[in-house]
Design a protein around this nucleic acid. Structure first.
Lengths: 140, 140
DNA sequence: GGTAGAGGGGATAAATTTAGCCCTATGCCA
DNA sequence: TGGCATAGGGCTAAATTTATCCCCTCTACC
């Protein structure tokens, strides 16, 4: 297995939090689970940009970090459900804030991000969590 | 210059925000500037884990993304001061929340992070922003 | 002349993260 | 029998991000 060669810095809270949220899909995963989408296959459908492999890996990390809990039903085909732990829930205000901030400033951000010469092409089809109406949420 | 090969996804706010905050030191940089540490050399001293090069690059990205403004004084030796833009300030509640969340759950997080087999060694000496007393802050 | 301070930035190597494939297992359906 | 769905996870190759080194500018100081 891969091992870090550079020491992890974890003095200020910022770095600790970053470590937990570090991963292309982690915030989106937490968000999805909080909104009631708990099965891996459902989450995968909601995040068309992600591979099954990546979701699987990042879900595992979130679990190891204690943000989510996994319940495996001994069935076939297998059934697994994730849910937020208490500390995982405590992250939600932050995830929401990140999400809202991005949406609030979308026009501006899209503009400046496009100006970045490193950015050549863009996708705007991925996460469809917005389309979950409040009625579909299963919070708690 | 390096160009992205994988299309950037920017549908939900989460991804947009992530793009802006993406960088090992970006949240810390914004935090430092918000607290009144505006010159690159001062920031560098506060973040012993970072190289001059990295800070320089990430500051530039933050500037290109419109989060901070750079004022160059035509002096010698050169003098540069960064400050948050309006949209940059609007990120501060989030940065603060990230910071506080990490500090609040420090004990727990340090434990679970250490259990990660990838993590071999750790540093706890870096950012010293906590040591800035309120009196030293120059907000606004 | 050599050194230090302040800032910028090119080039390249190393580290780390994602993407892509493949294989496991079982029951259901055509 | 072949294909699909569901979930895990090994392994390798790309992609992306950080770390390192080095050079440049100009001035003051020893």
């Amino acid at each position: 297995m891969y091992k870090r060669k550079i020491p992890l810095t974890m003095d200020c809270g910022l770095h600790l939090t970053k470590e937990v949220l570090n991963g292309k899909w982690k915030p989106a995963l937490l968000n999805a689970i909080a909104l009631g989408v708990r099965r891996p296959s459902e989450i995968l459908r909601l995040l068309p940009g992600a591979t099954r492999r990546v979701l699987s890996v990042q879900l595992k990390e979130l679990e190891e970090h204690g943000m989510i809990e996994k319940k495996t039903y001994p069935q076939l085909p297998p059934k697994v459900e994730y849910s937020l732990t208490e500390i995982g829930w405590s992250l939600m205000p932050i995830i929401d804030a990140l999400n809202q901030w991005g949406d609030t400033h979308r026009t501006f951000l899209e503009t400046v991000i496009r100006q970045d010469p490193k950015v050549v092409h863009i996708t705007k089809s991925a996460c469809q969590l917005q389309h979950l109406s409040v009625g579909e949420q299963q919070v708690g």
